[in-house]
Nucleic acid binder design. Structure first.
Lengths: 133, 133
DNA sequence: ATTACATTTGCATCGTTGTTGCATTTAAAA
DNA sequence: TTTTAAATGCAACAACGATGCAAATGTAAT
C-alpha cells in the first residue's frame, strides 16, 4: 500500500508533506521523531505544517504518537492489528530507538472496585539487539 | 513517617518547600501535578524552586514522576513496594486523577531476539469509581 | 548565640514544543 | 479553466524544562 492510497482512502488531500511523512515512516519501519522525519525528507516544511500534518494523520488513525519520558515524541504507522487493541512499545535506552511490539499485552488487570479500563499504554525500556552485542 | 524524617534520612536540607511538597502528596494519597501541589501549599515558591525540588526528591527516590499523554505531569511518593519493581498507574479520563496500582504487573514479556528489558511503564486509562456512578 | 560555609532560592533568561490567527498558496472538483 | 475549500507559511504566544548568578537560608562548628 502506497502513501497516496492511504491518503485517498481517508479522503485526505495528497500533499507532499503528508505523503513524505507516511513514506519515511513506512520505509524506516520504526517510530520516528519530528526531527528524524525532517532529516529524511527532501522538502523543507514549516514546523507548524509538520505539527498539523501529524495531528491530521493521527486523527484519521493513520499514525499514532508514542511519548517517552515526557520529552521524546515519536510517530509510528497504525496497522489493523495495532489498532484493535493497545500494543506495547519498546524504547532502547542507548540509541533511543522506538519499536511497536504486537505480542506484549497486559494480563490480570485488577483495578480497584468501580474502576473501568478503557485504554492502556505500555512502554518497555531496555537495550535493543544492535546496542547489546 | 514524617516529611522531616524522610529528608533527614536522605541527608537533604529541611526546606519548607521540600517539606511542603512531601506533606501534600502524603496527605492527598494521590499523584499530584505541580499546580495541584502549589494550590495546596501555604508558601509561595518560584517555578524554578518547584522544578528543582521535584528533581532532587526524584533523584533520591523519595518521589517518582508520572507522565500522561506528554502533557499531564504528576508526582507520587515512592514506597518500598513500588520501588522494587515497576508498578502501573491509573489515569481517570474524567477527573484526571492519577493513582498508583501495586497489583498490576506485566506478564509474558516476549521481546525480539537480543532485546533486554530494564524498566517498564504501564498507564491504564479509564474511569474511576467517583466519576463512574 | 554567633559565625562560617555550603546549599538552596528567586530572578532573569533562553530553547523547545504545542498552539492559534491570518493571509497566501495549493489541491481537487465543477 | 475556474472555483472553492483545505493546507501552508509566517508571526506570535503560552507552557515547560533548564541554566547562571547573586542573595538568602539551613546546618554544623565555634
Amino acid at each position: 500500500m502506497k502513501a497516496i492510497d492511504i491518503l485517498n482512502s481517508h479522503s485526505l488531500k495528497r500533499t507532499s508533506c503528508r505523503e513524505g511523512i507516511i513514506d519515511v515512516i513506512m520505509i524506516t519501519n520504526q517510530a520516528l521523531s519530528e526531527n528524524e522525519i525532517r532529516e529524511r525528507l527532501s522538502g523543507n516544511y514549516d514546523r507548524t505544517t509538520f505539527y498539523r500534518s501529524f495531528k491530521t494523520l493521527e486523527e484519521h488513525d493513520i499514525i499514532h504518537k508514542i511519548v517517552i519520558d515526557n520529552q521524546i515524541v515519536k510517530y509510528a504507522l497504525d496497522t489493523s492489528i495495532m489498532h484493535k487493541n493497545g500494543h506495547a512499545h519498546f524504547f532502547c535506552n542507548e540509541c533511543h530507538m522506538v519499536q511497536c511490539l504486537e505480542s506484549v499485552t497486559l494480563q490480570n488487570v485488577e483495578l480497584p472496585e468501580g474502576y473501568t479500563e478503557e485504554e492502556t499504554e505500555i512502554i518497555i525500556k531496555g537495550t535493543c539487539a544492535a546496542c547489546k552485542k
